[in-house]
């Protein structure tokens, strides 16, 4: 029998790994993949907890999660593609047009 805590810790590990991917990788696609890994960490938590409490809420939550992720990802991917189309940009470092203008000294 798998203790709930073990599942939760594995889920936490997945979550942290996804986070690390986002923090380390500079490519937009990789970042989106990291996002998926994070969401899957959350999904694992929900499923494991659902089994522990023995009700369907956990699974329903996970289904909603998948729907939401799919919707979000679809729009995000389109935006990434637009960035590529317009600026030939695939890396996040190149998307830094919006920032505080620090060239000028404050008055």
């Amino acid at each position: 029998m798998i203790p709930l805590t073990h599942s939760l810790i594995i889920a936490a590990l997945l979550f942290s790994l996804g986070l690390l991917i986002i923090l380390l990788r500079r490519e937009l696609l990789f970042i989106l993949m990291g996002l998926e890994v994070m969401f899957n960490g959350a999904a694992l938590t929900a499923v494991a907890a659902g089994q522990y409490w023995n009700n369907a809420d956990g699974q329903v939550l996970t289904i909603f999660l998948m729907v939401v992720t799919a919707a979000e990802l679809a729009v995000a991917l389109i935006l990434v593609w637009l960035a590529y189309e317009h600026f030939k940009v695939t890396q996040i470092d190149m998307l830094t047009q919006l920032k505080d203008d620090t060239r000028g000294e404050p008055p």
Binding site: L61, L65, L79, V80, L95
Partner: peptide, 30 residues
């Protein structure tokens, strides 16, 4: 486009935290 990409990714990032919180709340109370 830059704004859209940034917002989409970061909002997803924050939503992951939000969702993770929900699942932990669920794990702790059922």
């Amino acid at each position: 486009i830059e704004g859209g990409v940034k917002y989409a990714i970061l909002a997803g990032f924050a939503a992951a935290f939000f969702l993770y919180g929900i699942t932990i709340a669920y794990a702790s109370t059922g």
